[in-house]
């Protein structure tokens, strides 16, 4: 189980990385943490001409907190993110999601940006970014563009990134008042990819009704996505509504089938985890209100 021969390139700057992408195009693989890519390389499923190691690009490790958003550079490690108080308190949903990502020994190396670029359908970080309406920053020789996360993920391991682009950072909206968050997933084993994961951001109005709700699903279809829930705005933020929302979503999803779960079971998890997370997010939001 050894990789094919490849050229190893270690650029020091984003510009150098972009030059390499221009040179190799889709024949290059970009490695950050390498937790998924390394396995695929060793199995020879990925057979690049060049491996572009971006770990030497200092600016990709940047962290910028603004008023409404926090920007994390691609190379921020998952464990590193968990140790950043500003990020964890500013983006509570990420704080709830990260402990579910892989294992202690993979979070130490795996990056936020790498997980997003890899676009596994059940990965937690893409799901969180989608649920929060975050964005992905991409750089190419032509300049920089920011793509809403909800448009970035296009399918199984497939994103809006073009072959000449590098994911340079992620943009996370900072928590708003009266907004609650919850994240839950179920896997056959601790730390495995979720059979289904549900992330919720919910804002509850002063009168106890739903002002805004975003329900993200991971592991259910071929990409993380946010379910349609607009019809429930204005309904009471209760467990009964949570269950209604989850049941409604479960009816419209078109779940994947794999070795671990069939479509019926994934739908069921959407119901169960959806109800739990929505209820928890409503409670969290209400708690915020009371604290305020």
């Amino acid at each position: 189980m050894k990789p094919v021969a490849f050229e190893y390139c270690r650029p020091d700057t984003v510009e150098e990385a972009l030059e390499l992408l221009k040179e190799f195009g889709s024949d290059a693989s970009i490695i950050s943490g390498g937790l998924s890519l390394g396995a695929m390389l060793n199995m020879r499923l990925v057979r690049p001409k060049a491996l572009i190691d971006i770990n030497g690009i200092d600016e990709l490790g940047n962290f910028d907190a603004g008023d409404a958003t926090i920007r994390t550079g691609t190379l921020i490690r998952q464990a590193g993110a968990m140790a950043m108080p500003a990020l964890m308190s500013g983006v509570p949903l990420l704080a709830k999601a990260l402990p579910h990502v892989g294992h202690y020994q993979t979070r130490s190396r795996g990056t936020l940006g790498g997980s997003v670029a890899h676009a596994d359908p059940s990965a937690e970080i893409p799901l969180t970014l989608v649920t929060l309406s975050g964005a992905v920053t991409l750089r190419s020789p032509g300049g920089s563009r920011e793509v809403p996360a909800r448009e970035f993920f296009q399918g199984l391991l497939t994103t809006d990134r073009r072959a000449d682009e590098l994911v340079t950072g992620l943009t996370w909206p900072i928590r708003r008042g009266q907004t609650g968050y919850a994240f839950e997933e179920l896997a056959q084993r601790h730390g495995d990819f979720a059979i289904a994961a549900v992330a919720v951001e919910a804002t509850v109005a002063g009168d106890g009704t739903i002002a805004d709700v975003s329900v993200g699903l991971g592991g259910v279809e071929d990409r993380p996505f946010v379910a349609a829930t607009a019809g429930f705005v204005g309904k009471p933020a209760t467990e009964a509504t949570a269950s209604d929302i989850a049941n409604t979503i479960a009816e419209v999803v078109d779940p994947m089938v794999d070795l671990q779960a069939n479509a019926d079971y994934r739908r069921q998890l959407v119901r169960v985890l959806g109800t739990r997370t929505l209820t928890a997010a409503f409670d969290d939001a209400t708690g915020q209100q009371e604290a305020a």
Partner: peptide, 11 residues
């Protein structure tokens, strides 16, 4: 393509 994830979350 043909492949799903080998391993979790990070890359």
């Amino acid at each position: 393509g043909f492949f799903r994830r080998i391993f979790g979350g990070g890359s």
